[in-house]
Each structure stands twice: as C-alpha cells, then as structure tokens.
Design a protein around this nucleic acid. Structure first.
Ligand SMILES: [Mn+2]
Ligand SMILES: [Mn+2]
Ligand SMILES: [Mn+2]
Ligand SMILES: [Mn+2]
Lengths: 218, 218
DNA sequence: AAATATTTTTAGTCTAGTCTAAAAATATTT
DNA sequence: AAATATTTTTAGACTAGACTAAAAATATTT
C-alpha cells in the first residue's frame, strides 16, 4: 500500500530526476515538497525500505523500477484528469493543477481506464505534456524552447515548461495557446528577448517567457 | 479545515441520525466507522471543539448546523460522482460506491459546480437517493418499501435501501432496476415473502428483499 | 591541506488518528 | 434497591508524518 504522501514524494522524485541529474538530492526534494530536509530523510528511508527508491546516505535518491512504475501511473492520472477538467468541465488551463493534484490519488483501475476511453485516449494534457499510456509508455514529441528558435523560423506552440497560473494567464492575455502559429521576427542580443509574429501582431517576448514556451518547427 | 477523517465521521453521524434517534451513540458510530469506541470518543471530542457536533459525555452526538452543512456537502459530492460514474464512465450501480467514497473528499467548489452542470443537474443518484442541491436542499420523493405495499398494488421501483453490491447484483439478475414496474400478486403471511409480477414474470421475493426496495405507487 | 561553508542525518518532540486494557457511568435484571 | 451487564470514557502506547536543533559528512575556499 502506497500512502498519499508517499505518492507525492515518488512523483516529485520522478519529475526532478527527469530534468536534472539521476540522483535527486535531499535538499532539492525538500524544496520541491515544501518541507524540511530532515522530513525528507525520514521519508526517503521509508521509501527505500519499501523498495521504491535506491538510497545511500548522503548520496541522494533514485527511483527503482517499481518506484518509476508508480510515478508514471500518478502522472498518467494527473494528466488525464487535467484533460477531463478542460474538455468536459470547462476549466481553463490555469485552473486545473491543484484539482488534478488531488484527483491523481484516487485509486481505481477501472476509473482511469474508463476515463481514458471517455476522453478518447488523449496523448497530451492541456499544457502539452505527454500522457503515459496504460503500459506506462510515453511518446514525447520533438519540441524545443522558443528561445532556441532561429530568426525567421515559423513554428507552432506545443507546450509550456512552466505551468504556473501566472504564466498561463500571460499567454492567454497575449492570445498564445497550444496550436498557435508563430514566426520569429527578431532576436535581441542584448537581453535575449524575442520579437514574434502571432496572428499578424508583433509581440516582444522576454527571454524568460521564451525559455518557458515549447514549440515545434513547421 | 476539515480533514478527510473528520469528513467521514461527520457524514456517518449524518446518515445514522437520519435513520435512528437524534443522538448517535458512540458504539453505533464505532460500528459504522469500523473502528473502536475509544477512537470515536477521541474524535467526537475534537469535532465538538471544532463546533461540528454537540456532545455531552455518555449522551452521544448530534451534528450542529455547521456540521450538518458539511455533511450535506459531502453527500452531494458523493452522489454526483456516482451519477458521473454510471452515466459517463459506464460503471454499473454496484461498482460505484467505493470510488465515490474517495471522490467525495476532493475539494473544489468549481469542480462540483461544473460536474453538476455537466450531468445536467441530476436530482437522484443511481441508487435512487436524492442529491442535495447547491444550497443543501434535499427534495425527497414519497417512497415506501415494497414490503409495505398491498396486494394488487402496481408500483415502480424508485430506490434501494441497502446499496451493497450483493443486493444490487441480485436485482440485476432478476431484471429489477430503477424505473421497473411491478405488481404485487401475493403476500405470504407465514414468512412475509411477496410474489410480484415483473415484466410479466412472477417472482417470489423474500421479506428481506422487500424490505430493501423502495417503490412508488402508480 | 586546513579552514570554512553547505548539505545531510540524527535525536528528540509534536499532532492526528488508532489501539488495548482498565475505570467509570449508565442500563437492565433480579 | 442491589447486583449485574453494557456502554462509554480514560490512560497509556503506537505509527505516519512533520518540525527544530544539533551533529556528522561532504564540498568549497583559502
Ligand atoms: Mn498530489
Ligand atoms: Mn499538466
Ligand atoms: Mn469517504
Ligand atoms: Mn448512492
């Protein structure tokens, strides 16, 4: 039996490992979980005893095969629920995270299987993140950050790296959504800002924004 | 802040009070919660301090206005989710309870409001139980138990008192569902069994069954 | 290679919720 | 009205998860 708290730790280890080194440090995990390092040490010992992580004192943690399996299952549920909230319940993409954060812990094989079918087997969530399939397989598309695009590149927006409400609302305000077509018109060397053409309007985007928007060249 | 455990206690007090005396006894609550009387005493003290129940030592508990409000909210969520599972995810009525038991604790005003709209404001759950509206109002239809019907009464099945999987499967097997029309053909004085006509088939029903099936005379 | 800074772990405490065993209160019999 | 049975509460202990403060290990400077 995996408790809700254990699930949250496992999921966070998964996310941190995905975008950093293999071994997740106690401090990094503490920060992500908004808790203290000492609490993390305790939990990590427990997860290790249960076989969900490999842990050696002072060396950080990495998920075992079993741990990874659990993590992927939670991510799958989280993202399917996000699709549900947007597609069926008219939530906007900046309102869904905290609700999905709760729903991801509901335990029922049938529920998630039926939900998947009901949503017609979506492959990506409303933020452009891939949804693992029933077997845990994740098909990732080859996306790059807008900051990496070259001048005169034409591309479509396929995802966000930061999915905070603030960032998403900024995008809404500037009429950038998943599927929106953009062309890079200018790259300012001084501050790495980018001028893009969106819906025939020019928009100047800071480097921070460009670093959090995934695009696909077209 | 109401914890998940507190919510479950409050809901159970609500259900027990609804079908018994006003003050719910420690033992009754312990049995319903599948826990020990001593645990109930502790929890009941806490609920009392938080203002959700009135409690005097050795006298049992009753929900306060605030407690009742919380209870009704949980019941509303539970039943709306049950409708969702049956109507949208093709669950059968005997598979939904334990999942709804989890879903009822998800905290999001908007979620439940949108779910309600998505389901087109259902008034009853798949077991025939009424769904409290947004303000907490419950409109109960005047139903009676099949065991109380008179000979040659014609009626329709509108709900179940026992919603255990076993009972529901029994009804499925005998092609009795909500909305099914029945006529009482015979009442056996010896064991209080009832012979009914369902879909032009005669079916003999034990008193226990007849005592758990709600009908409406027509 | 020391000295210093940072990270991580340990030790001890706290709250929520549960349990068993014993004590106290209430209900039921005689 | 006692005696007995049942219900309820108290006392003390346990686990999960979190926290603070101090100790130990590792990393970074000098
Ligand atoms: Mn979560
Ligand atoms: Mn997402
Ligand atoms: Mn519940
Ligand atoms: Mn129900």
């Amino acid at each position: 039996m995996v408790t809700l708290t254990e699930e949250n730790y496992i999921k966070e280890i998964y996310h941190l490992a995905k975008q950093g080194e293999n071994n997740v440090s106690t401090n990094a995990l503490a920060k992500a979980m908004e808790t203290k390092a000492s609490s993390v040490t305790d939990m990590v010992k427990k997860l290790s005893e249960k076989g969900y992580v490999d842990y050696k004192k002072y060396q950080g943690v990495a998920l075992t095969k079993q741990g990874k399996h659990i993590a992927v299952g939670i991510v799958r549920k989280h993202r399917l629920w996000e699709v549900f909230l947007v597609e069926k319940l008219n939530f906007s993409w900046d309102e869904i995270h905290e609700v999905a954060e709760q729903l991801e812990h509901i335990k029922s094989e049938k529920l998630i299987k039926q939900l998947d079918a009901f949503l017609e087997y979506p492959t990506h969530d409303p933020h452009g993140d891939p949804i693992p399939d029933e077997t845990g397989k994740i098909k990732s598309i080859d996306k790059i950050l807008l900051s990496q695009a070259q001048i005169y590149d034409t591309c479509i927006c396929v995802g966000v790296k930061d999915s905070s409400s603030e960032f998403l609302k900024y995008l809404d305000k500037n009429e950038i959504a998943l599927g929106t077509k953009l062309t890079v018109m200018h790259k300012e060397a001084f501050d790495n800002s980018v001028t893009i053409n969106v819906n025939n309007n020019l928009l100047i985007i800071s480097n921070l924004i460009a670093n959090n928007l995934f695009i696909k060249l077209s």
